[in-house]
Design a binder for these strands. Structure first.
Lengths: 353, 353
DNA sequence: CAGCGTTATGACAGCGCTGTCATAAAGAAG
DNA sequence: CTTCTTTATGACAGCGCTGTCATAACGCTG
């Protein structure tokens, strides 16, 4: 809005094209010239005009973030992470809340890509795991990065930032097992989320490794919501042989489970242990505070955006493609955070060991 | 990215300038011509290219949303509301998370305004209430709308969307009074927030109208956080003459108060009533669910953005300035939502009435 | 229907940048 | 030191739109 490429060129005593070359890291600029330009840039505090860049070149300096997630903490963390990566590289972010269930998603995506020149898309669950959405994105031939549960990355590793739900769930379950729990209930998230299956898998593996056969009625379908946590926990706790611990597939469900236990006058963690998943802020705002697995959403998102951007600038980076993705972590395993909602299994009916 | 103003012009058989006139609602276009153009626009599904618009005209089609709020629900609601308003009018949103405390805010704002051509700013608390920030914004001569507590709007009504914290707090307090509470503790939000003062004022007025003199030690300073709620409630409850109800200045603090009560084995609402403020999602995820005041953040934000946009398009709207702001609500009073954390005052020491 | 004030429309430049292509400078080779 | 490459730099058009200004069409009046 103020200082333009012309000002920089004048100051550096070169043509605007040369300035353009420097700020875009293109080759064929003598070091001395490059330095002159860089100096002018910083002296004038020049920043290229995004609108002009988007309009002129074939490249785009805008990426879009598509989300549909009822969990505000999750979205904000992700968004801030993406924003950081964008700012670092001079990109702009287009925010697009949408509705995974609705049939208009595909049309929305198409409009988005066709109307605004977009360098790429960051997809988070549930979009990143919905095959039809991915198909649409591929058909539109737009670059993208998906944040997904490791299980879902298989065919598409280059475009994925993976979260190892299974490994984290394994750790969480082991934590309960080490506290002597043998009957551990599991509340599933929504079927449509791959993370649901990953977390269940981790739980199953841990149980199996401990030599425990998981009874059918201990694993309940549900979805990633508070109410689902309440209902699931109620069902488990009202059964003839209730578990001594409950693995809720996310913190919100765990909060629901806590709520249900409270309704039924069950003391946490004395009579029942509950663990969540994600380490969202409100896992610290329940009573008692939740044992959970810390999922670094902010960093995950930052890496996803960085990965996307590392590709679009492509062509002319100095040090070759090898270094381009340096420092971009591609797989995350949420780490166990022990707080107050889990403890030793109550000692009453000791029928094994 | 696909169909441009040229295509529309060709199809409608007019010059691109005429198309420009139509899509910008400028005068001096014959109805017949206008119709031809409109038809072409919809047949081709034309959408003006934002980058080009931003680059060419003096107008800008980008507004920015500045926030610094630890409450993710609040931010997301606001953001979605703003986004709706933007989409409806073909504007773009620039998201700018920042840090109200940091001294760099002013520089950030300046960079934002100087580097990207910005049509206006939507400011939410705490920025919208920080005088130095407002001064900076005014100095930069950029249009803006502030979302503020009614008390803060005085001098600047035209630029404010007001939330009547005082009235809502009055209602909330009355609710407690009607349940027979006489000793009602009040946990303040951060001093720097005007809403803190508005809420306190509403509480004070209600108490006064009920003929109750509020003792000093019943009103505690704090900030809008869970921990602050925990600490404040503890202090109140450990005093010699504890209150029978606590007014927490937001839901997060109320959740904290609930937590403290739980620690001290105080039954809610039997022994103690607690109310929050805002009706954020987690007011439904506590045990028991919170009585609170519903603050329609999404709509508030939508109106704020709509107000901002109603001005920037200015000049050439058909029906004059009167209709421009039609339907834009400018003041909101959060409404009482009674849930389970409030109830009749316990009957023990009846020393007055 | 000439003569005037409007109102409607279009030609054209230019926003700040990038892509293409031509040209200048520098190196390599003979 | 001439010729041929290679590398470095610049002139210029044009992205899709809006602003300015000139011109064309219209609508009155006498």
């Amino acid at each position: 809005m103020k200082v333009t490429i012309n000002d920089v060129a004048a100051r550096a005593g070169v043509s605007i094209k040369t300035v353009s070359r420097v700020i875009n890291n293109e080759p064929s600029v003598r070091p001395a010239t490059r330095k002159k330009v860089m100096d002018a840039v910083s002296e004038l505090n020049y920043q290229p005009n995004l609108a002009a860049r988007n309009l002129a070149g074939t490249r785009s300096y805008t990426i879009a973030f598509i989300y549909d997630n009822p969990n505000a903490y999750y979205v904000i963390d992700m968004q801030n992470g993406i924003l950081e990566a964008c700012k670092a590289r001079g990109y702009e972010l287009l925010i697009h809340p949408s509705n995974a269930g609705s049939p208009t998603v595909h049309r929305e995506l198409q409009d988005l890509v066709e109307h605004s020149k977009i360098a790429g898309l960051v997809l988070t669950p549930p979009f990143s795991e919905t095959q039809s959405v991915i198909d649409t994105v591929k058909r539109l031939e737009v670059d993208y990065v998906r944040i997904v549960s490791s299980e879902a990355a298989l065919e598409d590793e280059g475009n994925c930032i993976q979260v190892d739900d299974s490994a984290a769930a394994y750790d969480l379950t082991r934590h309960l097992l080490q506290h002597g729990h043998r009957r551990i209930g599991f509340l599933c998230g929504g079927e449509e989320h791959v993370s649901t299956h990953g977390r269940l898998d981790g739980y199953r593996r841990a149980m199996q490794n401990a030599g425990i056969i998981v009874e059918r009625e201990l694993v309940l379908k549900g979805e990633y919501s508070f109410d689902s946590g309440v209902n699931g926990a109620k069902k488990l706790l009202q059964s003839d042989n209730p578990p001594t611990a409950i693995f809720a597939s996310n913190d919100e469900m765990a909060a629901g489970a806590l709520f249900a236990a409270r309704l039924m006058n069950i003391a946490i963690p004395e009579q029942l242990s509950i663990v969540g998943f994600e380490d969202s802020p409100f896992s610290r705002q329940t009573w008692p505070k939740l044992t959970t697995a810390h999922q670094p959403n902010n960093e995950i998102a930052k890496c996803a955006a960085a990965l996307l951007l590392s590709r679009t600038r492509g062509k002319a980076t100095e040090s070759g493609s090898a270094s381009k993705e340096a420092g971009i972590k591609r797989e995350f395993t949420p780490e166990l955070v022990v707080r107050d909602s889990s403890g030793p299994a109550p000692v009453e009916i000791m029928n094994d060991e």
